[in-house]
Simulated scan of single mutants.
Amino acid sequence: MSLAERLRHVRWIGGGPGAGKSTIARGLAVRHGWDLYVTDDTMADHAGRTTPQQAPFLHEFMAMGMDERWVERSARTMFETFHWYRGEGFGLIVEDLLRLPRDRPVVVEGFRLLPHLVRPLLADPLHAVWLLPTPDFREAAIRGRSASGEGFVRRTSDPERAARNLAERDAMFVERLERETGRLGLPAIRVDVALAEDELVERVGRVFGIV
């Protein structure tokens, strides 16, 4: 049995940071009784399961201080060297999914789901969708996290510059996702501030053929 067939029960929700992936995935899991796999929750575990040879950019990042990560480098360098954006550790996501029961669907979500890595695993192209947040939507999400006191950028010497670098880096990532999904013929949904959560759930559900 091919890997795509072994993962036929999986539904994939990728996209840019702050696009609402977690909210939509959790909503679908609760509504339809699916299992949920959150790739953000596995990052520390996956980092510990790799070697510098397997994930050189990840281990270089882990050795950096907060300012070196987020303040001292350009947004372009941050984007080009960010380990998860390069697909490091993606194989561990697949390993984890293969260990889950196959008797019910699993929805997996996270920005680590790069289109060119997910595409070969799809028995059906409509088993995956990418959420692409507009600049206004990303800014609103960032403001919300800042207002709640969250944000590792606060642990840098220049939070304003770190936040700007991070926003620019993530904008580059969303642009790449848009190009990749278009090139590979994969579903993508633009997410803006005018799009209500219920409508987004419905759109994702239509892609998956469940509404």
Rank of each mutant, 00 (worst) to 15 (best):
K21A: 03
L122R: 00
A63C: 03
V201A: 13
L200D: 10
L58D: 11
D170Y: 08
P159W: 06
L28H: 11
Q53T: 10
G48L: 01
G18D: 06
N165V: 10
R112G: 13
D35K: 08
E197Y: 11
M66H: 13
E5I: 11
T50V: 01
T51F: 05
R6F: 00
R164W: 12
K21I: 03
W34V: 06
G14R: 06
A75N: 06
A19R: 00
D136M: 06
A55Q: 00
E95C: 07
D170H: 14
R155N: 14
F57L: 14
Y85S: 15
A29V: 13
H83I: 01
M172W: 11
T23H: 12
P56Q: 01
F208C: 10
F137A: 15
R206N: 01
I142R: 15
K21Y: 08
Q54V: 05
L98K: 08
E197R: 13
T51C: 03
S74T: 14
R112K: 15
W130H: 03
V118L: 00
R143Q: 15
M66E: 15
F173G: 00
G89N: 10
A75R: 09
A147T: 03
R8H: 11
V201T: 06
G185S: 09
F79P: 12
I93P: 00
M43I: 08
G91S: 04
R183M: 03
G65P: 00
I189C: 11
G209K: 07
P135G: 02
D192R: 06
A141C: 05
L58I: 01
L98M: 12
D124K: 01
E5A: 13
Q54T: 10
V38G: 05
R31Y: 05
E88Y: 07
H9D: 07
S157I: 10
T23G: 09
F137D: 10
D67M: 02
E197T: 14
Q54I: 08
H116E: 15
G151P: 06
A167M: 06
M64A: 07
R176N: 10
D192M: 11
G33C: 05
G27R: 13
L92V: 12
W12K: 00
V204K: 02
A141F: 10
R112N: 15
V174K: 09
I142P: 04
L36Q: 05
S22E: 14
I189Y: 06
R76W: 13
I24N: 03
D124T: 07
D136S: 12
R203S: 08
E5N: 08
T81V: 00
F61L: 04
L126R: 14
H59P: 08
G48S: 04
G182E: 03
P135T: 02
G149C: 01
M78A: 02
H32S: 01
D103P: 08
